[in-house]
Write a protein that binds this DNA or RNA. Sequence first.
DNA 1: ACCTGAACACCGTTCAAGT
DNA 2: ACCTGAACACCGTTCAAGT
Lengths: 175, 175
Amino acid sequence: MVDAALRLLDDVGLPDLSMRRLATELEVQPSALYWHFSSKQELLAAVADRILATVPEPDPALPLTQVAVAIRDALLAFRDGAEVVMSTYALRLGARRAQDSLLAALGGTSTADESAADAIFEFILGHSMLLQQRMHAQSIGAVLADAADPTARSEDVFAAGIGAFAALSVRHSPS
Amino acid sequence: MVDAALRLLDDVGLPDLSMRRLATELEVQPSALYWHFSSKQELLAAVADRILATVPEPDPALPLTQVAVAIRDALLAFRDGAEVVMSTYALRLGARRAQDSLLAALGGTSTADESAADAIFEFILGHSMLLQQRMHAQSIGAVLADAADPTARSEDVFAAGIGAFAALSVRHSPS
DNA sequence: ACCTGAACACCGTTCAAGT
DNA sequence: ACCTGAACACCGTTCAAGT
């Protein structure tokens, strides 16, 4: 059922992912969904966990950049993935894992490292959500007076962000 | 009318900010709103611009941290402010100003500085949205097995993020 | 245990028609 | 120029009742 929701999300996007539509997809009455999940929020939280399922377990041997890229790619792998994760973040069952993996990659256990890990996660989420937002606007044809492809510069922007954090982490760790 | 929308947003939050409710607030029929704005999206874009209206004009004399704090505070000044700005970012009429102010604060005009400015903006948005998300969850009473106040550590996380970018900018500029 | 049927209280948007 | 009235095609959620 979560799989069906994830497929539907990728097909139609978050605004059109309704309980009624999902029910139709499953050839079931809308009310049937409420036996499995008590609300749409809960269903979306389960979807969010599935989206982040591919990010690696915490592992100090993993470089920060690699973990960051894995999280970003997980978010971008499904339409509106970043927004789904963001909107269910408060009931984070699985977002915590992503943050733990970042923390491990930073190699630290200090509260300063925890703050850094949180900040990096917030950056990746903000970056990915804004990117997907632009991708959607572009597909609608809402062209801004801006440069061509919104996706084009985004790799540089992501690198700039992760680079800033990586630089900090390098300067801290050689102790 | 945008003022009324902004007030209503702050009162009831984005999920309950409907065209019909706004119309009721203005003592008018829902359809009347569509003479002024062609869609809810457009109305929200105008609201987003109002939210960011208090961020300072681009000024190289302004320190990066100050501009970053100004943007964050603008987003946090209204309930769900970050989400509204994010969701209308693609048709950014006013988000561009915030990014330009960051760019000026970085002091640069290189494409590397542009990427950095974008990354900082993405971090601030992600940070603010996640914070407001937690604030809302807390008000609902959805307490996680986590530490007490979600707002408590957020100042440290924000400082960690901005600090990382500021450190980069310092190392680049003394040329 | 799992689902249907029917209802409740809503949505955004369009469009003829009024003033 | 600005608004009403009425409709269209939807929502999430609840709850008795069925199997």
